[in-house]
């Protein structure tokens, strides 16, 4: 790419838009790249913690990508991983402190899982694969894209598990009392840990049925 072309490339050129769009579907970090499931599933019993978790991860991925991208030429290769871990850990501590200060009740529900963002494979994966080799702006978009790809899965899980498992959304009752009187009952299985795994399996199934190029050979 010549210098002139580079300058003409707008902030939201097709190439950049792809950085956001692809992680939402064909490069989804959870269902395709299999990254970052660890900290995801345990907090999806309800929509609110799932949403806060998704937001935290997106912020951390985007900022870590930018920081590492800015530092990419100065980082001594031998201590590369430690530098990345330090940046990520520092950002996660900041997020944790902010959550404790402003949304105390949610931070209690998230408990140790905020800390586990540090070892969320999405982070190290994106830092190594993208931020180390790209400029800050695309790195930022890549972070946002992957964060959002992670978020929608988390929020979808939280939505289904809370709605059908507890009859509420964001803590407000959605399924009216009259349903329960007519014999409807919450699906208790959905709020137990195994349901999260089965739901992710189902999402993958649906996604791959629609996009056959993702099917594994075995």
């Amino acid at each position: 790419m010549s210098k002139q072309q580079k300058e003409r490339e707008s902030l939201f050129s097709p190439r950049y838009r792809k950085l956001i769009r692809n992680p939402l579907s064909i490069e989804n970090p959870i269902t395709v790249q299999v990254l970052g499931i660890c900290s995801a599933l345990a907090v999806t019993t309800k929509l609110k913690p799932a949403f806060v978790m998704a937001l935290s991860v997106t912020v951390v991925v985007a900022l870590a990508n930018v920081v590492i991208s800015l530092l990419r030429n100065g980082i001594p290769p031998r201590i590369r991983i430690i530098v990345q871990l330090t940046v990520v850990a520092a950002l996660v501590i900041l997020v944790d402190q902010v959550l404790k200060a402003f949304v105390y009740d949610v931070s209690k529900q998230l408990s140790v899982f905020v800390g586990l963002i540090i070892t969320n494979c999405i982070l190290m994966g994106r830092l190594e694969a993208f931020a180390m080799a790209n400029k800050p702006w695309p790195a930022f978009l890549d972070g946002i894209g992957n964060g959002l790809g992670y978020s929608w899965i988390l929020i979808a899980l939280g939505f289904f598990r809370e709605l059908f498992g507890n009859g509420t959304l964001w803590g407000y009752r959605i399924i009216p009392q009259s349903f329960y009187e007519a014999g409807y009952s919450n699906n208790g299985l959905l709020i137990l840990p195994p349901a999260a795994l089965i739901l992710v399996g189902t999402i993958i199934w649906i996604q791959r049925s629609r996009n056959r190029s993702l099917i594994e050979e075995y």
Binding site: T45, K46, K108, Q109, G165, N166, G167, G188, I191, L192
Partner: peptide
Amino acid sequence: HDKETPGL
């Protein structure tokens, strides 16, 4: 509680 099973 901090993290008992929702609904149960």
